[in-house]
Amino acid sequence: MKKFLILASLFLASVGVSADDANKRIAEISDAKEKGLAVAKAMKAHNTGWGDSEAKMTMILRDKSGNETDRKVRVKSLEVEGDGDKGLSVFDEPRDVEGTAFLTYSHIEGNDDQWLYLPALKRVKRISSSNKSGPWMGSEFAYEDLSSFEVEKYDYKFLREDEIDGEKVYVVESYPTYDNSGYSKTITWVDQEHFRVHRIEFFDQKGDALKTMEVSDFKQYLDKYWRGHKQVMTNHQTGKSTVVKWSDYQFNTGLDEDDFNKSSLKRAR
Rank of each mutant, 00 (worst) to 15 (best):
Tyr143Leu: 03
Val124Trp: 00
Glu167Asp: 12
Ala120Thr: 11
Lys153Ser: 12
Val151Met: 03
Val124Ser: 00
Lys157Thr: 06
Ile127Phe: 00
Lys153Gln: 09
Met137Glu: 05
Ser130Lys: 12
Trp136Gly: 05
Ser133Arg: 08
Val151Lys: 01
Asp145Glu: 12
Lys168Thr: 12
Ser129His: 15
Pro176Ser: 04
Leu121Ser: 09
Val124Ala: 03
Gly166Pro: 14
Glu140Leu: 07
Ser128Lys: 14
Tyr143Ala: 02
Arg123Gln: 10
Gly166Met: 10
Lys132Ser: 08
Ser130His: 13
Glu150Asn: 13
Tyr170Ile: 03
Leu121Pro: 02
Glu163Met: 14
Ile164Ala: 13
Arg123Asp: 00
Asp145His: 07
Lys122Gln: 10
Arg160Tyr: 02
Leu146Asp: 01
Asp162Lys: 11
Phe149Ile: 10
Leu159Ala: 08
Ser128Asn: 06
Ser129Arg: 14
Arg123Pro: 00
Glu173Asp: 02
Glu163Gln: 13
Val169Ala: 11
Pro176Glu: 02
Ser147Val: 07
Tyr178Phe: 13
Asn131Gln: 12
Gly134Thr: 11
Lys125Gly: 02
Ile164Phe: 13
Phe141Arg: 07
Phe149Asp: 10
Pro176Ala: 08
Ser129Thr: 09
Ala142Cys: 08
Tyr156Phe: 05
Thr177His: 10
Phe158Met: 00
Val171Pro: 05
Lys153His: 03
Lys132Met: 13
Ser128Thr: 11
Tyr143Gly: 02
Val151His: 01
Tyr156Lys: 01
Tyr154Phe: 15
Lys122Asp: 07
Leu118Pro: 02
Asp145Asn: 14
Glu144Ala: 04
Ser130Ile: 15
Val169Gly: 11
Pro119Gly: 07
Tyr175Arg: 07
Glu140Ile: 06
Val172Met: 01
Phe141Ile: 01
Asp145Trp: 10
Glu161Asp: 14
Glu144Gly: 04
Ser130Arg: 15
Val169Phe: 15
Ser139Phe: 05
Ala120Cys: 09
Glu150Ile: 02
Ala142Ile: 02
Glu140Val: 04
Ala142Asn: 11
Lys125Pro: 07
Leu121Val: 10
Leu118Phe: 11
Val172Tyr: 02
Asp162Phe: 11
Glu167Phe: 14
Leu159Gln: 05
Asp162Ser: 14
Pro135Arg: 08
Ser133Ile: 06
Asn131Ala: 10
Glu161Ile: 08
Lys122Ser: 13
Glu140Asp: 12
Gly138Gln: 06
Ile127Ser: 01
Val151Gly: 03
Glu163Ser: 15
Lys125Ser: 07
Ser139Cys: 07
Ser174Thr: 15
Asp165Glu: 15
Ser129Ala: 15
Phe141Gln: 08
